[in-house]
Amino acid sequence: MNHACKEISRLASESIERELSLWERFRFHLHMAVCKHCRNFEQAIELMHQAAALMHQSRYGEIKLTDSQRNRLHKAMDELN
């Protein structure tokens, strides 16, 4: 039996990036209906995608310019005038 997991997992990843064609969607859903492994894969990469975006929020949401960086920028702008 020939398994399509290699190709279907690629489509799972690409569906985050672009809209799949009608034919691709058809193959994708047909396979997903019968393959638990690929469903697990899809669930995992969705979760990573979400977690990565939230990590961005928590890591970078709060950072600010330091006073010395801010002063340096103001000084650079003063030199323009």
């Binding site: 020939n2 398994h3 997991c5 290699k6 638990k36 492994h37 690929c38 697990n40 894969f41 979760l47």
Partner: peptide, 17 residues
């Protein structure tokens, strides 16, 4: 290719998280 067997199936099946 390292993640799959020659027949296109997973060499190590992803678990449910």
């Amino acid at each position: 290719t390292a993640y799959f067997n020659n027949d296109g199936s997973w060499s190590e099946a992803p678990h449910a998280w």
